[in-house]
């Protein structure tokens, strides 16, 4: 359903993506792993059209994302940003219900608020949080509010950029289960970036490893441990020694 082909992107002298080829099937959960700074977030933003690749083609359902009608295209997506990216001028519930209060999905305020509180509950946040402002929350709570916002309008395609980074192990478990649930129950297509191997095993159908600007290895999660790929092995086991240099 989502396909990237020969995607290149540089920022000035830094070549980030150097020919990424990747495809994600409908209803599958794809996890992207890779060292920090390898361009995983850039990859997701390219699919959303937030960053324009220098070269290459990205399609969703066969349609080029560059030429798609933006409003309809983006209405299918939910995105959790790495830093949360909550609007700090709005209280938590209005952040979560942002899409439900404007544009084509607009509905009455009370209804939007009820949905927001329900989504907050699903990410493990109490209703009291709804009226706080993002700046009053801890980093992990902000992350979960971001997650609630990403799933608020029940999107078909969901991107999670490091959903469990900064969370305690129990909360990570809750979020992993939630992501799995969204994919299984709602039939959504998910693309998740994570460094956390527990998460990988909990939520992935397929994994892809980004290294040196290309997809170094991709395949079903079951094949991960017998891939024979030295890069992937080093990453999975978190070894300092191996083909991936520790100083990047």
């Amino acid at each position: 359903m989502i396909s990237l082909s020969k995607v290149f992107k540089s920022f000035g002298p830094i070549d980030v993506l150097q020919g990424v080829d990747l495809s994600i099937e409908r209803g599958k959960s794809m996890v992207i792993i890779g060292g920090s700074g390898t361009g995983k977030s850039v990859c997701l933003k390219c699919v959303l059209g937030l960053i324009k690749p220098d070269q290459g083609l990205i399609t969703v359902d066969g349609q080029d994302v560059q030429t798609a009608e933006r409003e309809a295209f983006l209405a299918r997506f939910g995105m959790l940003f790495q830093g949360g990216a909550l609007f700090d001028s709005l209280p938590v519930w209005q952040n979560v219900a942002f899409r439900l209060m404007r544009g084509s999905l607009k509905r009455p305020k009370e209804e939007a608020r009820d949905i927001a509180i329900e989504k907050l509950r699903r990410v493990g946040l109490k209703p009291e949080v709804a009226d706080k402002f993002p700046a009053e929350l801890s980093g992990g709570m902000q992350k979960r509010v971001g997650l609630a916002r990403a799933i608020a309008a029940d999107p078909e395609i969901i991107f999670f950029d490091e959903p469990t980074t900064g969370l305690d192990p129990i909360m990570s478990g809750v979020i992993n289960d939630l992501i799995r649930e969204i994919v299984v129950e709602m039939g959504a297509t998910a693309m998740t970036i994570t460094h956390d191997m527990t998460s990988v095993r909990a939520i992935a159908d397929d994994i892809a490893m980004l290294h040196n600007g290309v997809i170094q290895w991709t395949g079903p999660v079951a094949d991960m441990d017998q891939s024979g790929d030295p890069y992937l092995d080093q990453f999975i086991h978190g070894r300092a020694e191996g083909p991936i240099e520790a100083v990047r």
Binding site: L48, L50, L74, F81, G83, A85, R99, G103, R149
Partner: peptide, 16 residues
């Protein structure tokens, strides 16, 4: 600040 903290990107993804 909104730009730097990806809030502008978030607005776009929320169809705004």
């Amino acid at each position: 600040t909104m730009k730097v903290t990806e809030q502008i990107d978030a607005l776009v993804t929320l169809s705004t």
